[in-house]
Design a protein around this nucleic acid. Structure first.
Lengths: 348, 348
DNA sequence: CTGAAAGCGCTTACAG
DNA sequence: CTGAAAGCGCTTACAG
């Protein structure tokens, strides 16, 4: 049996209530008693039973994190930083993987929230809106939306509450503008975009931001082709094959996700194409090993540490009953070797 | 307020005790009542308060996982698979990152176990033995050792209990034997090993297994040089520099970790060396993007899914009070392009 | 400044 | 087959 507050109280010759007050640092307890109790608790290795605390205070001091895929290095890093940030505030992290499956996401949401396993959930939404998300909104759960916004078109109370939820994600506008500048500067006119699922808002946004930046620089809209991926590596390869199969294939490709960029590079290779000689490639999400690729991959890096601490700060504010603002730290383009002049033989 | 068992009972016109029994499927309750209660609970979206359950039953239905670094793709994948396996049994996963720091590991161990936040902990030990690990043993905590063994030299009760803890890790013997075969077959005689910290058992083992396999094939022991790393990328680069600085630098390098292999490749490059023309390289841990490297990295892949389910199965057995066996699924060498004939100009 | 008491939401012997 | 009651380990108003 682990040591209970009762045991500490007995040893200190006081009552459990006094121990509780002493350990919480209440000034209602004399300094002498407080110190003695604290010391004894320490000696005995006392830790409060979190279940009992949760029952009494309705606070578990843990938060849930539902990511779409921890095997994706971006989310792995993010999860690690979020755990670190949470631990700094003595919060535990319950990790779940939705695997991009809305039903799984909703299962985890319900298990975490309704079961009071956690005080709030940081979630990377797998779809624009799901019943579970709406349900979480209806119960006024503490939710932080990470990396992806959700569709807030309905007017019901659940949606209205969800609309109050802070959303933390990176701002790719400038970086995508730089990508447009880079590619047009290299003479590219036919651009392929491997987008995230287009029924999600990130999908539409990353596409639109790049398309607009390209059009602003004189690239005709119809020479920009979009292939839809699903954030996973294989979809990057498939989408690449689709883009290459067009009558006028792109001379440069932007993959809106790290794993899809890896897939795109594989797809390009298996088509016998050289990067950047035949086709230029820019990825989204960066990794320490991208500069070992052949060629080193030019990519947009997300501000992972900033995202993690913003998400945790937002959650803590929510838990403190304060209104929490979202945050949009900026991305940064990392220039490496996967972009080159548009191949003239293939140019429009 | 979330719906409580009491609310379900009121709606069903029974008492809370009956609801509890009905939901747990007890045959002490008539089938009719059981079904009705179950249906009503479902309709009301009832989920038991895990804190209350934990307090009453001393079981949280969640397990802790302390990895050394989730940013390491091997551990990210492993954590993902463990979460998946745990979820299949309706267990939650509380994730912690020790960051290879024994003190942090011990903090998490204490917080998780003493606070009864979880029923047991799967831990990747950061050192051969730590006070926290010993303490966990002393309280007969349910511990599964993952990826790395610990030193069980002491004879005290704590260590004895820890010695009962199942240990789940991959078996690299055959794969390392294959590496020795491959490298000696290519004419390599001077081999460099970038080992994990040598005060850990994995460190010694991965080194010894490869050294023995090489010696068995006629490589003189003194032409094998070992540089110590710390599982992180930078240490791979540093260790590589050390190996290259020797009077007789190795013609082939084995990096005993995925991140250190990435570091090694970077180190080789910044030394102006070409792989595999000048130096051959073999890594430990595989990743889907290793074949995009220049050159594609030959590496030993660990059986991640098998490790994850073995770890969870072992934990479930422990929680069920059964004696749990460890497991050692085998690794597999993945041949790619980073090994070539020993450079004659540099050969012994 | 400290103690005695109630109660958070469950589960499980114990009655009937 | 179901109900009434106790108790898991805490915290917090209420006495004194």
């Amino acid at each position: 049996m682990a040591v209970r507050m009762q045991d500490v109280a007995a040893r200190a010759g006081v009552t459990a209530a006094t121990v509780s007050l002493a350990l919480s640092g209440s000034t209602r307890i004399s300094a002498a008693t407080r110190e003695r109790v604290t010391r004894i608790a320490e000696e005995m290795g006392y830790r409060p039973h979190v279940g009992a605390q949760a029952l009494r205070t309705d606070s578990t001091r843990s938060i849930g994190l539902i990511v779409s895929d921890v095997a994706n290095p971006f989310f792995a890093d993010l999860a690690g930083e979020i755990q670190r940030a949470a631990a700094r505030h003595r919060y535990s992290l319950v990790l779940c993987n939705s695997d991009e499956d809305p039903d799984r996401q909703d299962d985890y949401l319900a298990a975490l929230l309704a079961g009071r396993r956690v005080d709030g959930v940081i979630v990377v939404p797998t779809a624009a809106m799901t019943p579970g998300l709406r349900q979480a909104g209806a119960t006024r759960a503490r939710i932080v939306l990470l990396d992806r916004p959700v569709a807030l078109t309905s007017r019901d109370a659940a949606t209205k509450h969800l609309a109050q939820s802070p959303i933390v994600r990176s701002d790719a506008r400038e970086a995508l503008d730089e990508v447009a500048e880079l590619l047009t500067g290299l003479g590219h006119r036919r651009i392929g975009i491997i987008a995230p699922p287009l029924q999600t808002q990130v999908g539409q946004e990353r596409r639109d931001l790049l398309v607009d930046a390209l059009v602003r620089r004189g690239v005709p809209r119809r020479s920009i082709t979009v292939a839809e991926g699903d954030f996973r590596q294989d979809s990057g390869a498939t989408a690449t094959a689709q883009l290459l199969a067009r009558r006028q294939p792109p001379t440069a490709i932007f993959a809106a996700d790290g794993l899809m960029a890896v897939g795109a590079l594989k797809g390009l290779r298996s088509a016998g194409l050289q990067v950047p000689r035949d086709v230029s490639l820019v990825g989204f999400d960066d990794a320490p090993w991208f500069d070992l690729f052949d060629p080193p991959l030019t990519a947009i890096a997300q501000p992972i540490v900033a995202l993690a601490s913003a998400a945790v700060d937002a959650m803590l504010a929510l838990l403190a009953g304060e209104s929490a603002l979202g945050s949009q730290p900026a991305c940064q383009l990392v220039h490496r070797g996967s972009c080159g002049p548009a191949a003239t033989g293939r140019a429009a």
